[in-house]
Computed example of a mutant assay.
Amino acid sequence: MDTVALTWAVGRRIPRRVADLVARIVAPAAALMSLPAVDAWAESVEIATGRAPTPRQRRLLLQAWIRNNLWSLSLARWSTDEVLATVAVDDVDVARLRDSLAGPGLVAALPHMGSWDFAGAWASRMGMSVVSVAERLPRGLYERFSEARRGMGIDIYPVDQPDVVRLLTDDVHAGRLVCLLADRDLSSRGVLVPWPGSGRDVAVARGPAHVALRSGADLRVVTTHFDGPRLRIEVSEPVEGESVEELMAGVARVFADAVSRHPESWLMLRRVFR
């Protein structure tokens, strides 16, 4: 059995409490190591927030990264009760999702924060039909992740799927919740927008704005961050704008606010800014 298959076979069987314990044990030691990916995160956080992350935040970042990955591997096996009990979300945020789904439709733009897979699994367990897009990873990883996400209740298109915008538009019109990661451009066809307070631009995916404009749906930002043993989900008001650039600049403003408040949950282990 190769390393990928072994990791998948073991990880999908690790219960949440064990995953959280592993994260708490491993993160302090890992935080003391020189890790280029974490150094890149620290540089991005300092530009994004104007503050260098503390050693504690570096440790919490690694703890969050481990938790997110182990949770994602095992989520298909979680009971509905366990999923719902692990989420902290205000009634107003749930109402925002349901109002848009009952009205013009909804496209949710998400950053790589907290556990975005978990947000989709939670929405599915709440009775929402969820669809998303993922990059086509090598070595069978795309197929494994797609299968795992189907187990969570999330349908996945590959990012190179022909007519993917049309398919997502059809999903919006069918009342499905379209969730798209957007703080990193996967296609090289993204849009440069200002990151508030940094004086720098960031390349974000244009997909959320494109699908929202084409379908007439509301565009909201959904962010998640680890809050003790639970995952908190926050939902923005609809982002306003008449063009892809205006809408994605508005999305970036919500991302920036979330990252400023919870930089240790921003799992962007790479340099982000131009």
Score class of each variant (00 low, 15 high):
93 D>R: 03
28 P>R: 09
215 S>D: 06
47 I>C: 02
102 A>C: 11
258 A>L: 13
216 G>M: 06
26 V>S: 15
72 S>N: 08
151 G>S: 14
79 S>Q: 04
266 W>P: 09
168 L>H: 12
175 G>W: 14
205 A>S: 13
224 T>G: 08
245 E>M: 00
122 W>P: 00
90 D>R: 05
152 M>H: 09
98 R>E: 15
74 S>G: 13
24 R>D: 14
191 V>G: 02
96 R>G: 09
246 E>W: 00
270 R>P: 10
161 Q>C: 15
135 E>K: 09
80 T>A: 12
170 D>C: 05
171 D>V: 13
246 E>A: 00
47 I>V: 09
75 L>Q: 08
243 S>E: 01
240 E>V: 02
229 P>R: 04
211 V>Y: 03
165 V>K: 00
103 G>I: 08
26 V>H: 13
141 L>T: 00
254 V>C: 12
239 V>Q: 01
149 R>N: 11
139 R>P: 00
253 R>Y: 03
181 L>F: 12
59 R>W: 09
250 G>S: 03
253 R>G: 07
43 E>N: 14
206 R>V: 01
93 D>W: 05
10 V>T: 00
231 L>I: 08
19 A>L: 05
221 V>K: 01
7 T>L: 08
205 A>G: 11
131 V>E: 07
123 A>L: 11
15 P>N: 04
200 R>E: 12
69 N>L: 06
217 A>P: 02
258 A>P: 15
107 V>I: 12
178 V>F: 06
193 V>S: 06
147 E>Y: 10
10 V>L: 00
13 R>H: 07
260 S>M: 15
260 S>Y: 13
60 L>T: 06
60 L>R: 03
138 P>V: 00
215 S>G: 04
73 L>D: 06
38 V>R: 08
59 R>G: 04
146 S>G: 15
9 A>V: 04
212 A>S: 05
260 S>W: 14
165 V>Q: 02
128 M>R: 07
245 E>F: 01
82 E>T: 07
169 T>V: 10
26 V>G: 13
174 A>R: 10
11 G>F: 01
127 G>H: 09
41 W>S: 05
165 V>E: 05
94 V>Q: 10
101 L>I: 15
53 P>H: 11
144 R>G: 11
87 V>T: 08
171 D>R: 15
201 D>E: 15
